[in-house]
Design a protein around this nucleic acid. Structure first.
Lengths: 209, 209
DNA sequence: CAGAACAGCTAACACCTGTACGCTGAATTC
DNA sequence: GAATTCAGCGTACAGGTGTTAGCTGTTCTG
């Protein structure tokens, strides 16, 4: 709204169809097909524009894909940051974070699948982009473990890397699963993260003594 | 050899071109493209047969893909089982298993990528197939933790699930990486698995007391 | 208000895709 | 040795793909 007025009718409209393209891509992703086998023409069709008009917004499909990856990571991180603020009113940080994460996966299955899928597939550029997102999570977790929990830099790194791996893998487990099963997975993941935390704690003690 | 004689010239030749198709698919996988965007025609071309002859061996590309997944899981499991036997002559089971695993990933990058990629993508049937492979690993690990290490069923399950997640995620980290970096990743993974093991140990103690 | 900018369009291109059909020649069977 | 089986082939079709070139009408700019 506020930006729209300063943007002019034209740019406003352009942004609108850009969103339409992004949404169309996300919709087609939620079907059975992966991003790599989805076509410029079909995306354009669903967005309601001519195939050739696609190029007014993205140089090719890959550019659209990278946009999707960026957006997905961004919104997920925002969500988790909000969740962490809610913790100050009491509650386990592990539990709240993981439950938030799982809720995100359930709500945005298609786009989260893109994230996980392109982590191992497609072009190197895609993989780098996803890895960058995972690094963001890891970095925030490291900061927390070091500053709030007093872990050494090395142990914080090792620990958070393991946790990110466990949590994102658990996210992948949620794809073909109903709500109650998802809650079970969340519960299991919480316990696993606690396992790691406990191991790190034990390691710290062993080194201090 | 021994089977070839009883198999007849004809069946022998058929098996040969079947392998050619499988190898062709693996080769094309090692390029940049994922399995979903790889075409029957190109695979047939690389295998040196006419496109239509493909159907003499597989009903469609998906059937070929599932074959690939099965084979990959099978050889990896055999490798790990061999590794575990070598352990009896001394050496940490964690270290030997993970180093074997990482070596496999380095040698069979293309097909391992298929495994990880189809875990989150494509048809439900593919995902189920990959999940089945992961379950096999988990099951063997559970057995070891329960019988040899004396963990409770619940704790063994929790622990091995976490370990499989960590190790396979680490495998994904090896894609765009040279040999020395891969060794670093292996080292880090070993420490992380030990973290989990230590956490599980601490949990067991806490429950006993 | 004239002129530039530009999102979106249509038409057309060269190419690739999966698959149906029917044939051929060698291996197999009886 | 005649009959059958069947892996592999060539042809052909209908439909999809990305991308180029050039037009149109609206919005923005000076």
């Amino acid at each position: 709204m506020e930006k729209a007025q300063t943007l002019g009718v034209r740019a406003q409209q352009k942004e609108k169809t850009r969103r339409a393209l992004i949404n169309a891509a996300m919709n087609q992703l939620s079907a059975e097909t992966g991003f790599s086998s989805l076509s410029l023409r079909e995306v354009a069709r669903e967005a309601g524009i001519a195939p050739t008009s696609f190029y007014r917004h993205f140089r090719n499909m890959d550019e659209l894909g990278l946009t999707l990856v960026d957006e997905c990571g961004l919104t997920l991180r925002q969500l988790l940051r909000q969740a962490r603020q809610r913790i100050d009113k009491g509650g386990s940080i592990i539990r709240v974070s993981i439950e938030t994460f799982m809720q995100f996966v359930a709500d945005n299955t298609a786009i989260f699948r893109l994230l996980l899928q392109e982590r191992t597939g497609r072009s190197r550029e895609f993989r780098k982009a996803v890895e960058r997102e995972l690094e963001h999570f890891k970095a925030e977790l490291i900061e927390y473990l070091r500053d709030e929990q007093g872990f050494s830099a090395l142990l914080a790194d090792l620990q958070s890397d393991a946790i990110v791996k466990i949590v994102f893998s658990a996210g992948a487990d949620c794809f073909d699963v109903d709500d109650t099963q998802r809650l079970q997975i969340a519960e299991q993941t919480i316990q696993q993260v606690r396992l790691v935390a406990r191991g790190a704690e034990a390691t710290r003690r062993a080194k201090v003594e």
